[in-house]
Nucleic acid binder design. Structure first.
Length: 990
DNA sequence: CCCCAACCGTA
DNA sequence: GTACGGTTGGGGG
């Protein structure tokens, strides 16, 4: 090894634990073998070996080794008997993965190094220093703080999960000391995980400060008498020997005997077939394909390797402590690839078998872009239409000239069909693009004209419209609402459809995005061409009709192809997981319902907004002057950074909270606190922020969304962007129009009904608390809702023994905050913040609440347990919300996921209820011969436009449909209550 | 031109 | 303490 070389040292043992806890807990091979950590490990190795240069490592390795712990009986155990004594057994799912990861390392042709009596860290340290001495550079792939002592200008660490380099500055930033002082710092702080004692009462912050002051540990111990803080001084003096022992435990050995000399770590070329055989045995479809591509191997002719799997204690090899429980040990299992992929799917015994067979068939099916065709004449189009009718199933996409389906024109259609949809093989899929709205990109004075060699829209519509409107032919799309709305504007109403985005959402809400890219990558092991690659972006970006037809054809046909493949994988999966009902009853019907709502839009009065904007501008300007006056200078008030400098620097006000980047927070809460202390400026800032927020986000932005033709505002609802099942609203977001302040409410007066109509707002009263009363079955809550009693007052009465009549508003306010807190998965910290009380008092409230309502605690505990066991929670209608991080080893992350998992069934059930109401609403109104049109949804509220003469007849229909929405699927144990009223604008209707 | 952090509007 | 989306400032390329 020499200068210019670069040695990569992977902390294999560290990676196993980290990956296991960071990755979704339920990643399993088809035979149930847990392989999440192995998968993460293989992907990381491949990335480092092929394009480390493109990660933040920035260099390509010349030498490479993966290091493991061999035995826990190391020299450290001799130094200190309790070392690592409180290490608990690794989780059961992790056990077989220890051996697999070693096998993976060998499959990658990489040295797999472990030495008896030493930890991986010592081996890494020894190699790193030796390599450094030759002038080479070293990257240690680990984020373990125990290794940070090794960092120098030539030795870096790399956190592969966060793609983050850790060098000297990063160590200082994180720990407050440079790497060479890490040993002393750790000696002072200790480590509860490894049972390194350290000095009691000294944490990282104090330790860094002491080392800054005294230089190093020995000096500190010698001069400990100078420390001013009594307790700290005494603790350090009393525990000096403990610190010295700790130092010996954390200091890494640089003299570990090395079986493999440094120079033997030179990176060898990959053995493609060997690696592929292993990856196939592990069923890593996506990585198998990437490796096969890179090695130019045909993966399909390579037999999966036979992999020995050990489930029992022996799986970890010798690094297990004596006396471990081996009762769960089983005989080694042979884990070859399952035969399912090759099985005749007609013979699939269960939906799960079919789903598995499809998934396997499609992850290894090759996608051949060269066989996509462009349809340019009516004969070809007729042929395709005939085939589509014969098959009865097509994947379909409408390519528009804008991402906004309310603005877009149609550039062309793409479709894909399988000659036999029961054959799970990519060979039988054909895909085509039908351009008819493309323009040529000539930049001359005449502008652009129609592109040549394409059918006319008339020719295409005449043939395609009947197919799209024929319920006997299933149309499969991805985010079909886009095409549905775009086509509806052009006189076509799609009948009979499926949406793979929604299938994925039902199957895996919370596990990641549901974009076509993400789904293709995940399920098909294939990354489609991105729109950017095809059309460019930014200033030079083209609208799709300007894209060259050949390029457009491949892009569009590929999308249809992938959509068809995805439906063949995901639809059986729905059945296997018993989620078909959720998909068919709660998701699919909303595509058409929402598309119609979006198309209708709502009238927003430009004049009202313009007048409000002027008022806001004047008021803000006046406050601005006053702010500059008080501050004594002009600055950018909207910059939290500059504002912080003024408030906490120049003016010397006491800082409150810090943001996560270490800046002083200038949040409304902090400013309110300062105002309460009698300071002038913070109040003004709060007022200024409110006014400018209203102006920029609402009064100034909304007019820009008024559609040039319809003169109305058309939001877009996103069906698959929340974990819980709620919708979200974008461009513009009409689910966050102000209501809480008088100033903000005025914006709602700009949302008006058209002439001869009124707006009707109908909202569920306390729907989430009612859902909670139902699912947790709380007698007092059920009774209160049955009797129509004020629920917060009832809660206060139960908790504080105050009668409901004449209850002080402060008492009720606190009970209300607790009720909300319960829905949000309560913590003493959060409740304390909300009520501005201290944490112990908040803890008392929670304790008392649980005493009065023990069923709520039971619900919370059982929900957490369910989430931990399954990785997801369910609404009362069976919708799933996944929380892959609920088993995180990070207590903060875990607690957050627990709270979210408690909230999701409540929020999600309420979301399901209003979805059911929306789906039923239109046919119900129609049956009642009412012309009311549903326009907007705001989570627990629906907004309609109703003819003046029909209001009295319509209100009860709306109310009943909403109140009965859970039935007959669920008989709620509490009644649902809906309030509805009509007015000429949204403010008065609500 | 793109991304992130901070902040704030809703249920 | 839950769930979202939009605007701004400020930094990077």
């Amino acid at each position: 090894m020499k200068k210019g070389d670069h040695l990569f040292l992977v902390d294999g043992s560290g990676f196993i634990f980290r990956a296991f806890h960071a990755l979704p807990p339920l990643t399993r091979k088809s035979d149930g073998l847990p392989i999440g950590a192995v998968s993460g490990f293989c992907n990381m190795l491949w990335k480092l070996l092929t394009d480390a240069r493109d990660t933040s490592v920035g260099v390509t390795p010349t030498h490479f080794a993966v290091i493991f712990d061999y035995s826990s009986k190391t020299f450290r155990k001799d130094l200190y008997d309790a070392y690592k004594a409180n290490r608990s057994e690794p989780p059961e799912d992790l056990i077989p993965q220890f051996g697999l990861i070693r096998q993976a390392t060998r499959a990658f042709n990489l040295p797999c190094i472990e030495t008896e009596g030493f930890e991986a860290d010592d081996i890494i340290a020894t190699y790193a220093r030796q390599a450094e001495a030759t002038g080479a550079d070293v990257t240690i792939i680990s984020s373990d703080k125990d290794l940070m002592q090794l960092v120098t200008p030539n030795v870096h660490m790399y956190d592969s999960m966060k793609d983050k380099q850790i060098g000297i500055p990063e160590v200082i930033e994180k720990w407050g000391v440079p790497p060479e002082k890490m040993i002393d710092l750790q000696a002072l702080v200790g480590d509860s995980v490894d049972n390194v004692p350290g000095i009691p009462g000294i944490g990282p912050k104090t330790a860094a400060q002491l080392l800054e002051e005294f230089g190093d540990l020995e000096t500190l111990l010698a001069r400990a008498g100078e420390i001013k803080q009594v307790k700290r001084r005494e603790s350090i003096i009393a525990n000096a020997d403990l610190a010295r022992l700790s130092r010996r435990l954390v200091e890494l050995r640089l003299d570990t005997p090395l079986d493999m000399p440094l120079d033997s770590l030179v990176l060898e070329t990959q053995d493609g077939p060997k690696l592929i055989a292993f990856l196939k045995a592990m069923e890593f479809g996506s990585l198998t394909r990437r490796v096969a591509d890179a090695c130019d191997c045909d993966a399909s002719v390579i037999e999966p390797a036979h992999v020995e799997v050990q489930w029992g204690a022996a799986a970890r090899g010798p690094d297990l402590d004596a006396g471990a429980d081996t009762s769960g040990a089983q005989a080694p299992v042979k884990a070859g690839i399952s035969k399912a992929a090759a099985a005749d799917i007609y013979g699939a015994a269960t939906p799960a078998d079919l789903a598995k067979a499809r998934a396997e068939a499609f992850t290894s099916a090759k996608i051949d872009r060269s066989c996509y065709v462009t349809i340019r004449d009516v004969e070809a189009l007729d042929d395709w239409m005939r085939a589509a009718r014969e098959t009865g199933v097509i994947a379909f996409e409408a390519e528009g000239t804008s991402i906004d389906p309310m603005q877009a024109e149609i550039a062309g259609f793409s479709l894909a069909l399988a000659d036999n949809t029961h054959t799970p093989s990519g060979r039988d899929i054909r895909a085509a693009y039908i351009p008819f709205g493309h323009r040529s990109g000539s930049d001359d004075l005449l502008g652009s004209g129609r592109a040549e060699h394409q059918l006319t829209s008339g020719e295409v519509f005449e043939r395609v419209k009947p197919l799209l409107e024929d319920a006997a032919v299933l149309k499969i799309g991805h985010n079909l609402k886009y095409a549905y709305l775009l086509l509806k504007r052009h006189g076509i109403e799609i009948a009979s459809y499926d949406d793979v985005m929604l299938m994925s959402y039902v199957l895996e809400a919370g596990k990641g995005p549901h974009s076509l890219d993400a789904l293709s990558d995940r399920w098909l092991g294939h990354m489609p061409a991105s729109f950017k690659e095809v059309a460019g972006s930014g200033k030079s970006g083209l609208s799709f009709d300007m894209v060259d037809i050949e390029r457009a054809s491949v892009y569009a046909a590929e999308k249809a192809d992938l959509t068809l493949r995805l439906s063949m994988v995901l639809k059986p999966r729905l059945a296997a997981d018993q989620l078909t009902r959720v998909y068919e009853r709660l998701e699919r019907p909303l595509v058409a319902t929402l598309a119609r709502m979006e198309e209708r839009g709502i009238t927003v009065d430009r004049q009202i907004l313009s007048r409000l904007s002027g008022e806001l501008a004047q008021k803000a300007a006046a406050i601005e002057d006053a702010i500059y006056e008080t501050a004594g200078e002009r600055f950018t008030i909207g910059s939290p950074k500059q504002l912080g400098d003024i408030l906490f620097g120049k003016m010397g006000l006491p800082g409150g909270a810090k943001t996560k980047t270490g800046q002083w927070s200038t949040s409304a809460q902090v400013l309110e606190d300062l105002a309460a202390m009698g300071h002038d400026l913070p109040r003004k800032i709060v007022d200024w922020r409110q006014l400018t927020k209203l102006k920029s986000t609402y009064t100034d932005a909304l007019p820009g969304y008024i559609h040039p033709q319809t003169k109305r505002v058309h939001t877009s609802y996103s069906l698959a962007s929340t974990t819980t099942g709620r919708l979200s609203s974008v461009e513009p977001n009409l689910q966050n129009i102000p209501i809480r302040t008088t100033e903000g409410r005025k914006i709602r007066t700009a949302f008006i009904s058209s002439v001869g109509h009124k707006l009707v707002s109908a909202d569920y009263s306390q729907i989430e608390l009612r859902v909670l009363a139902h699912v947790a079955d709380i007698p007092q809550l059920r009774q209160a809702f049955a009797d129509g009693i004020d629920i917060h007052a009832m809660t206060a009465s139960e908790m504080f023994g105050v009668p409901v009549e004449g209850m002080p508003s402060e008492i009720r306010r606190r009970a209300k905050a607790i009720n909300f807190g319960i829905i949000y998965g309560i913590s003493a910290f959060g409740l304390a913040n909300q009520l501005s009380i201290d944490r112990s008092e908040a803890g008392e409230y929670i304790k008392r609440y649980f005493e009065r309502f023990p069923g709520i605690r039971d619900y919370m505990d059982s929900t957490k347990a369910f989430a931990r066991d399954h990785g997801y929670v369910e609404t009362i209608f069976g919708r799933r919300a996944y929380y892959p991080e609920i088993r995180s080893s990070n207590p903060q992350v875990r607690a957050f996921n627990e709270r979210a998992a408690i909230n999701a069934p409540i929020q999600g059930s309420a979301a399901d209820i209003i979805r059911r109401a929306m789906i039923r609403m239109e046919p119900t109104l129609q049956a009642a011969k009412l012309a009311a049109r549903m326009l907007l949804q705001v989570h627990d509220e629906l907004i309609f436009e109703v003819e003046d003469g029909e209001i009295e007849a319509t209100l009860p229909v709306i109310v009943a449909t909403m109140e009965e929405a859970a039935m007959p699927a669920i008989a709620m144990r509490v009644p649902l209550k809906v309030d509805a009223r009509a007015a000429s604008n949204w403010d008065e209707a609500h």
